[in-house]
Amino acid sequence: MRRGKVDFAGVQKEICLAYTPEAKLGDYVIVHVGFALNVVDEIEAHKIFEALRELGELEEAQDGTDDRAVPPASLDPPGGTDD
C-alpha cells in the first residue's frame, strides 16, 4: 500500500496514499482517518479570493466600511474525526 509522510502544520504523520495515486512530493492533500482522499487543486483554491478582490475593489469605492466590525474567524484546527 502506497504511503507517504504528511506534515500537519509541523506534526508529521504516515498517511496511506492508496486513493491518491496522483499525489507527489509537495502536494497538499485532504486527510481523513489516516487516508489521503484528494490532492487540493491550487487553481480552484484561489478562485474565491480573486472574486472577492474584485468585489472588494467595487465596495471600497462605494462605502469604505470599517474592517474591524467583524468577529474574528476561528483559528483552531478543524475538530472531529469525521466528515
Binding site: V40, F49, L52, T65, P72
Partner: peptide
C-alpha cells in the same frame, strides 16, 4: 497553514456577509 488560514480571513468573511 496554507489552504486553511486564508479561509478564516475575517475580511473575506465580511465581504461575503455583505454579499449575502
Amino acid at each position: 497553514m496554507k489552504f486553511i488560514d486564508e479561509y478564516r480571513d475575517p475580511l473575506a468573511a465580511r465581504k461575503l456577509a455583505q454579499a449575502i
